[in-house]
Amino acid sequence: MMRRIASVFDPFVLALIGTVVLASFLPARGGFAQTVAIAADAGIVLLFFLHGAKLSREAIWAGASNWRLHLATLGVTFAVFPLLGLGIGATHIAPPEFAAGVLFLTLLPSTVQSSIAFTAIARGNVAAAVCAASFSNLAGIFITPALVALLMGGTTGGMSWGSVGTIFAQLLLPFVLGHLLRPWIGAFVARHKTLTSRVDRGSILLVVYSAFGAAVVEGLWSRVAPASLLALTAMCLLLLAIVLAATWALGRAMGLPREDAVVLLFSGSKKSLASGVPMAGVLFPAAQVGIVLLPIMIFHQLQLIACAVIAPELGKSAPADEA
């Protein structure tokens, strides 16, 4: 119990909280905002490059062929989550002004970089995490707009294929390039494990600062009543707790190995702010985008903080032979 309480004060958790505070008072503006966004993208590219260099071809093939894990992740992301979103809407748990945003949150794909980063910290199956998170994002390009049209009366007209190019350029391409260069740089990456760890955490912090700061610049805190914000935060906490418990229980019920259950926990319980922002810009009127995105922004911060507490504890409890 004391270890779990102490983990709340882990330097990474404190860094996340500090990043949110910094973005609230000193958000990136103008040219500096563009610089931060570029740095965040560069961190993601470097993260995938290093993971590609670190993983063997056998491990990647094993990750891609783990169809039970991938189907479970997609089922939680695009079936369990939307059902919970409909249930929240039917019971009016969320503040009325945020109802559309909460449902939209549950229809989004999983995160990529943070799912992989936390899986690595927890000493789970990183190869499977790369595949599961990437499959979720690729599927989400088609499934999320379809679910929005079906459940929210929205439209998929004008949905850009630019997201496909972004996923390929920032995630898959550097991963493949790193893997192709593994014969030359793999030993160096293996000897400097702290390098990958720092890139994992640094990329998360940059994405948080960039995304949260952009919302602050758009007047986030001036448009939201404190009571509604607290109610929305409590609802997001409840949703996150339910999904974290459900994904871990599902992994155990399916008999998944510990390292695969870790992947399901982190990939299945997350929702992507990076995917949600461009999708919302296409699927909703401009005046509605800000309020629609607020639930995913809050959920995004909560999931990062919660997983930053959970992942190190899982990593400490992993068998010594699990890398």
Rank of each mutant, 00 (worst) to 15 (best):
L239G: 07
L230Q: 04
P27I: 01
V76W: 03
I60Y: 06
V189M: 11
I5S: 11
L86N: 02
I44W: 10
R258G: 14
A23E: 02
S136L: 05
D260G: 11
T144H: 07
I121S: 07
I242C: 05
A146K: 03
F212S: 12
T119M: 03
S136Q: 08
L293V: 06
T144V: 09
V8F: 14
S222N: 04
M2G: 09
V199T: 10
M279G: 09
F284C: 04
R29H: 15
T73R: 01
Q303I: 13
R123K: 13
A42M: 07
I291L: 15
S272T: 15
H300F: 05
I305K: 01
A23S: 12
I296A: 06
V309C: 09
I5V: 11
R191H: 05
I141T: 06
L105C: 07
S203H: 11
A320K: 12
P312F: 07
A53C: 01
W221D: 12
A249L: 12
E218M: 09
A39W: 04
H192P: 00
P27R: 05
G63I: 05
G213Q: 00
A245F: 12
I60L: 11
G87P: 01
F266C: 06
F175A: 13
A169L: 15
D41F: 03
R3K: 15
A53W: 01
G87N: 04
S272F: 10
S228F: 02
P27C: 01
G186S: 08
L239P: 02
L74K: 01
A215G: 08
A318P: 14
I143N: 00
L14I: 14
I44K: 08
A215D: 09
I121T: 11
K54R: 15
W161Q: 11
I298Y: 04
P312D: 07
V13C: 10
S203K: 08
G268P: 03
R123G: 05
L264M: 14
L293Q: 01
Q303C: 13
G315I: 06
T119D: 00
S114Q: 09
G101H: 08
C236P: 07
I291T: 13
S197N: 15
I143R: 04
R223A: 08
A225W: 06
V217M: 12
A117M: 10
A128H: 12
R29F: 09
K193S: 15
C307M: 14
A214G: 12
V130P: 04
A280C: 08
H51G: 02
P174L: 03
L205V: 05
L108H: 03
G255R: 05
I38H: 09
L206V: 03
H92P: 02
S267K: 03
F168C: 15
L293T: 03
F188L: 11
A261L: 11
L86I: 06
F9I: 13
V282S: 13
K193Y: 04
V224T: 13
G85Q: 03
A120F: 08
R258Q: 09
F98A: 13
H179L: 04
L256D: 05
A23Y: 02
A246K: 09
Q113I: 15
T155C: 07
A117K: 11
I38K: 10
S65G: 10
F118P: 01
M152R: 02
A100N: 12
L138A: 09
S269L: 04
